[in-house]
């Protein structure tokens, strides 16, 4: 299909327009040049990323407002989050950003195998991130650490002051100190909203990268046409950027 399109475009370019070089098969008819097409799409993806920044800003405002007014809820709530899993997930996402940036480089240089390999690693990292998030979420749901009114965690049930610890309890090695503040569920409302929205973005990213992988296998990308890899890459880096802030804001509080 690609080959026939190339031929058609070449004939078109030489005969109808009489230009010096052939139209690229992926140059849309309403763009004069590939560079113009690339710049337009790049402006478009940046505008989309800005709407994403504003979208997440709403949740960051909620976080800041509640943390300023009710710091005790955050100081208590963050103890239920596992720093180690948070750090592992941060490293997984940073690594996926590296392979995504590497994939863009491979596309720009026409390195077909490198492009495909890097995209597969990026998707695998995204899946690993979601897997770890699943472990964290199921642990919280199991303990009743749920948003708002659904919050049903009983601090006395899990910490029988040393004596009544059986093997089941030691599984949940959450060491919580201090009295439980009223409306602690607010922390988990914010936690599940922000990480949940971020998780949805990870899933969307996996779908977008899979589409890029499919097109890479078909051999669509090269030094003259690598735009879609670049645009999806920019989106993926933004998802990573948001996590860079979420990790210290949720996991590393005192």
């Amino acid at each position: 299909m690609s080959a026939t399109m190339t031929t058609a475009a070449t004939d078109h370019g030489h005969e109808a327009h009489g230009e010096h070089h052939a139209h690229h098969p992926f140059q849309a008819h309403h763009f004069d040049t590939m560079v113009q097409q690339f710049d337009s799409a790049k402006l478009g993806i940046w505008l989309f990323l800005i709407t994403e920044v504003m979208f997440f800003s709403g949740l960051f405002v909620a976080y800041i407002l509640f943390r300023v007014n009710y710091p005790e809820i955050f100081a208590y709530g963050h103890q239920f989050l596992d720093k180690t899993w948070g750090m592992v997930n941060t490293i997984v996402l940073l690594f996926s950003s590296l392979t995504m940036a590497w994939a863009v480089r491979c596309a720009q240089l026409g390195q077909q195998r490198g492009l495909i390999t890097n995209l597969i690693i990026t998707i695998a990292c995204a899946a690993a991130f979601l897997g770890i998030k699943y472990i964290e979420y199921s642990h919280k749901i199991h303990e009743g650490l749920l948003p708002g009114a659904l919050f049903s965690y009983d601090p006395n049930a899990h910490h029988g002051e040393g004596a009544g610890h059986d093997s089941h309890d030691s599984e949940h090695s959450t060491h919580v100190t201090g009295p439980m503040p009223a409306r602690i569920g607010l922390f988990f409302s914010i936690y599940f909203c922000i990480t949940g929205l971020h998780g949805i973005h990870i899933i969307a990213g996996m779908i977008a990268i899979s589409w890029i992988l499919y097109r890479s296998i078909k051999g669509h990308f090269g030094p003259e046409y690598f735009g879609p890899v670049d645009y999806v890459g920019l989106y993926w880096h933004l998802v990573d950027l948001i996590w860079i802030y979420l990790f210290p804001l949720l996991y590393l509080i005192h």
Partner: peptide, 24 residues
């Protein structure tokens, strides 16, 4: 149409990001 970022730069940035994560 953009500039291919050298591989050495990409890896140096990644190593810095990991170091900063451990630091934080």
């Amino acid at each position: 149409m953009g500039h291919a970022m050298p591989l050495s730069t990409l890896i140096a940035v990644f190593v810095s990001l990991i170091a900063l994560t451990i630091l934080t």
